[in-house]
Design a protein around this nucleic acid. Structure first.
Lengths: 222, 222
DNA sequence: TCCCGGCGTTAAGACTCGCGTAAGGTTCGA
DNA sequence: TCGAACCTTACGCGAGTCTTAACGCCGGGA
């Protein structure tokens, strides 16, 4: 795997500085200035993501949430304000580290290396939950009834449930991950997709449990 | 594996504060005041190690190096000085994070959780009280009778009691945590939920004791 | 350009399930 | 023994969920 790092930073001077430092440290930085541009990128293409919280366009927190639901990639937050509440919120959302400006580029590099070094056990692009096998790269799902074809939304829902396999996943998280943003969470759209998903899962549908008042959970059958 | 955390900290006030916060967050802190005492411990017995760099006896950096050569356990550094050179040195030596005093306990907890989250997404955030095991992520409870499904309110009640395991919890606190606010505390709603909870706990119901005039307590059975 | 199939969304009715309340019984402490 | 605090059961309402059906958008193909 490459040493590619995604840097989301709108400050031109700072961004250039970080890019230079990362390059010298042997990384392959990929710099995006705009939050909306970062939305479309696939987090799994990168080793680490360095994210500035104060962005024009999409807010940094939204990006973080988005990345977290989609992938396991370590995310390191960069922020102007040394605000503890913000810090805690970021870390709770799944960020792996938090650096406040101003910082020395060397510190950032050291922290990135600390992220990378961590045992990344979940490198596989294939998740197995009971009788359900999900190939994230081929976007293919196999059950005990054979291979089945899912729509994009259905696949995203199942993929997120599989990544968090065994644990209950909030309705909100599922909506964030699978449906276009700016959705009215009160609508019953998600239910419909879940319903169709269950229909396709057929004999393995029992693995997709509903957690009342919370959301859903994908459990191993046995 | 348990949620045991090793805290190496010589400052008595700060140490106690951290221990309290960690306990409330569902961890099982193990506090050592002396660096030399920490030398002999096996790092693999702990989920995370929180290490103060300014210690009497063995220097913190030495301990860090020692742990790193022995084990893969995440180490989180605590330091009085906000010295970048020190920070970089620590992170290069393999520390997973670096927090400078003064800090808010909540921040430390959030950072610890960020460390813990990585290796295995399943099985973390788990509280064991006697025969009752509570998986906060899966929202699942296992007793000696097997897995049982709780309603949201019942789960919140049990979770709060488990977090404060062994100590009495006020009725008000339980109502705040589990029930919709703006409720009439004088009513017998909480009793009903407790009753239902006991019914589901079956043979382990004895662990959920009534503290007369105060509230309830979840105790280890044996 | 028009048609058609796939897909996401909305709407609506039926249904399940959790929650709060009431009411009567029981236990505890003084 | 008395009263307050607590336990338990039963029941109805309403929130949350499931399912079916239909609408609208967008793409490819004729």
């Amino acid at each position: 795997m490459s040493n590619r790092i995604l840097l989301v930073e709108d400050d031109l001077a700072l961004g250039q500085q970080v890019v230079d430092t990362l390059s010298q440290a042997g990384f392959d930085p990929h710099w995006v200035q705009d939050g909306d541009a970062a939305r479309g990128l696939n987090p799994d293409d990168y080793r680490v993501i360095v994210l500035d919280l104060m962005l024009p366009g999409t807010y940094g927190m939204d990006l973080l949430k988005r990345y977290r639901t989609k992938s396991e990639v370590p995310v390191l937050i960069l922020s102007a304000r040394d605000d503890t509440a913000d810090k805690i919120r970021g870390l709770k959302l799944g960020a792996d580290d938090y650096v406040t400006k101003p910082f020395f580029p060397e510190e950032l590099v050291a922290r990135i290396q600390a992220c990378v070094r961590r045992p990344n056990l979940v490198g596989t692009k294939r998740i197995v939950v009971g009788a359900i096998q999900i190939d994230l790269e081929r976007r293919e799902v196999t059950t005990s009834d054979g291979t089945l074809s899912l729509t994009p939304v259905e696949f995203e829902i199942l993929a997120l449930l599989a990544r968090r396999k065994g644990s209950a996943v909030t309705r909100d998280a599922l909506v964030d991950a699978a449906l276009d943003t700016a959705h009215d969470r009160s609508r019953r759209t998600l239910d419909v997709h879940i319903s169709r998903l269950r229909g396709k899962l057929r004999s393995d549908a029992a693995q997709l449990e509903t957690v009342w008042g919370i959301g859903y959970r994908l459990s191993e059958g046995s």
